[in-house]
């Protein structure tokens, strides 16, 4: 984060826009990342696991946020594309014997390609067709995972063992968290960089006013293609990381409900922003855990917990859309602005 903040003084290609707007945000980001990296080493396995899941979901959500939040291309198959990444990465490493880093990268590329295969026709059409096309992609891909045993080994998924890079085995989950964190921070820097570039702003222009954007010389087709490819690259990478986190690529983890959760994540978190992806990921991972905990404590009949959780989830979705459609990122930003005015009162931007 620190490095990239310096980078902007060297390159003024992005019109001098900094990655993070205020000094408070810059310091905050560095402190957060360092704090997580150090702090995670002292946590118990359960909390490291939660933290890893949140971090991976943040990475996946950046992709979906780029796609749906910034470019306005709504995908209801993000989880299925995470699955594509997870299974291809496993295939590259275990069946083809490639090193992990290469496999992660290739998994992202393959996922972007598969995404284009499904999304290409609808990129010419209005957003509604893309929603239905990605819905079909979710159904078809999930079915494919269950059938293509050369890739997935069993309908339930395949074990992938412990991640290793150049002979170093991530057998401690806290170490694996560091790898995930590194990827997510890199993903976040790329995401912020994209947003401040001309391309990122073209995406938002095209989402808001496609005709005007074209009149101003923006290339609609190209912009959508880049958004689509980049968004799915994130999905593939995150899916692959998720596979090694659980040490098992489970087909079930990439079902329709997970795709819906991903969309809910970015809506509740905040569309089109990095903090939205992170806050949404925290929300989507922790809410079911807390509800389960409360349910186990309060209810005698454990069989009603799952449907109750579902109902509360549905209700939260509807209420958020009705009352805070811009998500938690906006409330978060207000809070941060307030804290910042307290802390950096003299020379804040």
């Amino acid at each position: 984060m620190k490095q990239s903040a310096e980078k902007h003084t060297e390159h003024s290609a992005a019109n001098g826009l900094p990655l993070l707007e205020t000094r408070f945000e810059r310091y905050g980001a560095v402190v957060l990342v360092l704090g997580l990296a150090v702090g995670s080493q002292f946590l118990s396995g359960y909390y490291v696991s939660l933290l890893t899941t949140i971090t991976i979901f943040s990475l996946a959500a950046m992709g979906l946020n780029l796609l749906s939040g910034n470019a306005g291309l709504i995908s209801i198959a993000h989880a299925a594309f995470m699955g594509v990444g997870a299974f291809t990465a496993a295939w590259f490493v275990i069946d083809m014997g490639l090193p992990l880093m290469a496999a992660l990268f290739l998994a992202g590329i393959v996922t972007a390609g598969v995404g284009l295969l499904f999304g290409l026709p609808s990129l010419r059409l209005s957003g509604i067709y893309l929603i239905l096309a990605t819905f079909a992609a979710q159904i078809i891909l999930y079915w494919f995972f269950e059938q293509a045993l050369w890739l997935t080994k069993s309908p339930d998924g395949r074990p992938v063992g412990i991640a290793s890079i150049a002979g170093f085995y991530f057998d401690d989950s806290a170490h694996y968290f560091l790898l995930v964190l590194a990827f997510t921070v890199a993903g976040g820097v790329v995401y912020l960089n994209l947003l401040r570039s001309g391309l990122g702003r073209s995406m938002e222009a095209i989402r808001e006013r496609p005709v005007v954007a074209q009149l101003m010389g923006m290339n609609l087709q190209k912009t959508k293609l880049v958004a689509f490819a980049a968004g799915h690259f994130y999905a593939g990478l995150a899916g692959a990381l998720y596979g090694w986190h659980l040490q098992f690529v489970a087909t079930e983890a990439f079902n329709l409900m997970r795709s819906i959760e991903m969309l809910v994540l970015i809506i509740i978190g905040g569309l089109g922003s990095l903090s939205g992806a992170v806050l949404g990921a925290i929300f989507i991972v922790l809410t079911p855990e807390l509800l389960d905990m409360a349910g186990n404590r309060l209810l005698d009949d454990v069989s009603v917990i799952a449907p109750m959780r579902l109902g509360i989830f549905g209700m939260l979705v509807v209420l958020f859309l009705l009352y805070e459609p811009r998500g938690m990122a906006r409330s978060w930003r207000k809070l941060m602005r307030y804290l910042e005015s307290k802390l950096f009162n003299m020379n804040s931007k």
Binding site: G72, I131, L263, I267, A306, G311, V317
Partner: peptide, 23 residues
């Protein structure tokens, strides 16, 4: 509201109805 919010709200309603049936 934008298309996305409307789609999501119908999905939310669907989830609520499903949880009612399950309960």
């Amino acid at each position: 509201a934008p298309v996305m919010s409307v789609v999501m709200v119908t999905i939310g309603i669907g989830i609520i109805l499903r949880s009612i049936v399950l309960l």
